[in-house]
Simulated assay, not measured.
Amino acid sequence: MLENLRTSVQPYGGDLFLLLIALAVISFAVLFQLKSRFPVGQLRRMIRMAALVALLGSVFAMQAGTTYYAIAGVLLVWGVLVAVVFGREIGRKR
């Protein structure tokens, strides 16, 4: 099954794409569970850091070639999801 998955994502960056999706899902799940423990200032810093990672990572992925555009998309979607979830948590805490 893993070989089928690896061959199906080969045009989008291969193993790096699978690793990035796994890291994005795991980090989002961990941050989602820990969001209520962070103070508002820390949530704002996390939003800024997620935006920085998403933007820089997507720029580097796009510079690497058209094969890695899907990786850039995953990074941007991850950054937006983190910002939306943490933004709602900031609104809830106010």
Rank of each mutant, 00 (worst) to 15 (best):
D15S: 15
Y69H: 13
F60P: 00
V85W: 00
S8W: 09
L55P: 04
G13K: 06
L31P: 03
G87T: 09
Q42A: 12
R92G: 00
M49K: 12
A61M: 14
N4E: 11
P39N: 15
L18P: 00
G14T: 03
L34H: 03
A51H: 15
L43C: 04
G87M: 11
R44K: 14
A50K: 00
G73R: 03
M62D: 10
M62V: 12
V80E: 04
L55T: 13
Y69N: 12
L31W: 05
Q63M: 15
L81M: 09
P11I: 06
M46T: 08
R94L: 09
V40R: 09
A22L: 05
V84I: 11
E3P: 11
L43K: 05
A51F: 13
R48D: 13
A64N: 06
F86Y: 07
S27R: 00
V77K: 02
L34W: 01
A61H: 10
S8F: 11
I47C: 04
V59R: 05
P11W: 10
L23K: 02
R45Y: 15
V77G: 02
F86S: 00
L5Y: 10
A50Q: 00
Q10L: 09
S58E: 04
L34N: 04
E89H: 07
V40F: 00
Q63L: 15
A61P: 07
E3M: 14
V59M: 07
L81Y: 02
S8G: 08
L16E: 08
L20I: 11
V25D: 05
A22F: 06
M62G: 10
M46C: 08
G14S: 06
S8Q: 10
I21W: 06
I21F: 10
L19A: 15
L52V: 11
R6D: 07
L34Y: 02
V82Q: 00
V30G: 00
Q42G: 07
G57Q: 07
G57A: 08
R6A: 10
V85H: 00
R48C: 14
L31I: 05
N4M: 11
L2N: 13
I90W: 02
S58H: 06
